[in-house]
Deep mutational scan, measured.
Amino acid sequence: MSIQHFRVALIPFFAAFCLPVFAHPETLVKVKDAEDQLGARVGYIELDLNSGKILESFRPEERFPMMSTFKVLLCGAVLSRVDAGQEQLGRRIHYSQNDLVEYSPVTEKHLTDGMTVRELCSAAITMSDNTAANLLLTTIGGPKELTAFLHNMGDHVTRLDRWEPELNEAIPNDERDTTMPAAMATTLRKLLTGELLTLASRQQLIDWMEADKVAGPLLRSALPAGWFIADKSGAGERGSRGIIAALGPDGKPSRIVVIYTTGSQATMDERNRQIAEIGASLIKHW
């Protein structure tokens, strides 16, 4: 067993022997301040990774656009098919120029040779490549099948209805392509620590998230040296922004954090800054 596999296998073990965790309302004060600064709703939840206990939450059962955070769930569904012998990570998928959609920095470079399922998941999570996500959605049967996968996990809230990039439209009061912070946090925890996926697939999923290259201005910008984070960000229309993450000190994750916002007129930089400040408060009061 590799060191990384050992780390993920012992996530519940280490967490069980940690000192009790206590909620700190100071972080919620910052979440509410972010709402004021952005002029928009902000949803927040913080779960203990081992027990699933909610440590703090704000608007945990209000719907927010998922945006690209759905790509972690998508690759979880792909990995479940791999575990069941219905898919192979090494299978190569070929596609054409007509398949390319807006923001496809990886797939646009491989029109000639195609990409493997493993490479597509890596591109979808680490670079948020939209064509990679659409190609992977095709392998599982489309958005409705991802929703069905989530329902089978016990998540009857999260739903995907459309493809990239239309799913980022974020129309107010439109339930399409949305989740709730509580539902997303619980589902992410199941994917990373539950028995739904094999140990190898859980490790692969967290490795992809740990290698995320496009979430630097968010929670990662607030992390002290030595902290662990595996995350996936999302951005959408109407001032929408979000991030889902597993993080913790001492090089291992111990909490799940989900943050979503929508309806702001603020710039992307300002949305990023507010999420980073929430992260800084979380870490300060850990």
Rank of each mutant, 00 (worst) to 15 (best):
N98Q: 07
A225Y: 00
G154L: 04
Q274R: 05
L28Q: 02
H156D: 05
M180P: 01
H156L: 03
M115S: 01
E62Q: 13
R202I: 09
V157H: 00
E26W: 00
P165E: 03
P172I: 00
W286Q: 05
V117C: 07
E164S: 15
C75S: 11
A170I: 01
S122K: 15
A34K: 04
V214C: 03
R63D: 06
A280C: 03
S104K: 03
E169G: 07
D33Y: 02
V82Y: 00
E237K: 07
R202A: 08
D129N: 11
I206F: 15
I243T: 10
I243R: 07
D231G: 06
P60M: 10
I125L: 14
L197F: 10
A266P: 15
M184R: 06
E61H: 03
A276H: 14
L137F: 14
L223I: 12
G226E: 14
V214D: 06
N272I: 04
L38H: 12
L219H: 12
R241G: 09
H285D: 03
S233K: 01
I256M: 12
K30N: 14
L74Q: 09
R63P: 06
R92S: 11
D155R: 13
E145T: 02
S68I: 00
T262Y: 12
G76Y: 00
S254Q: 00
G234R: 04
Q204S: 09
G216T: 07
L199I: 07
K144I: 10
Q97W: 05
Q86D: 07
D174M: 02
A211L: 02
G90H: 09
E270R: 10
G43E: 03
Y95M: 08
L28M: 04
R220H: 07
S240F: 04
P60C: 03
W163I: 14
S254N: 01
T158F: 15
Q97P: 03
A124Y: 15
T107H: 00
P253N: 15
G242I: 12
V78C: 12
A132H: 15
D212H: 13
D36R: 04
R41V: 03
E102M: 11
E164C: 14
L282E: 02
Y103Q: 01
G236V: 08
G279V: 12
L167V: 03
E62T: 05
E35A: 08
I259Q: 04
M115Y: 00
I278N: 09
F64R: 11
Q88S: 14
V31I: 13
Q86S: 10
D250H: 04
R41L: 13
Q203T: 09
K252R: 01
L89N: 00
A266Y: 15
R81C: 09
P65K: 14
K213E: 06
A230Y: 13
R81S: 00
A148Q: 04
I54F: 11
L74R: 09
S68Q: 01
Q86P: 08
P249M: 10
L111S: 02
A235D: 08
S96P: 06
P25W: 08
Q88N: 11
Q203A: 08
S80N: 00
P143S: 04
P253D: 14
C121M: 07
Q97S: 09
S201N: 09
R241A: 13
A124I: 13
L160C: 08
H110C: 12
I206V: 14
G90N: 14
S68E: 03
G85H: 02
D83V: 04
A124P: 04
I45A: 04
L89H: 05
F70V: 01
K190L: 15
W227F: 12
E62F: 15
I283L: 14
T267F: 09
V214W: 00
Y260M: 03
G251C: 11
L219W: 11
A276E: 10
G226T: 06
A280I: 00
L192C: 02
M115G: 00
I243G: 12
E62V: 11
A230G: 11
R273M: 11
A225F: 03
E169C: 01
D161Q: 05
L137N: 08
I283V: 15
P143I: 02
R63G: 04
I206N: 00
R118W: 15
I54N: 07
E175S: 02
A148F: 14
V101P: 04
H110I: 00
L49S: 14
R273Q: 13
R255T: 06
W227L: 04
N173A: 13
L199R: 02
I278W: 15
W208N: 04
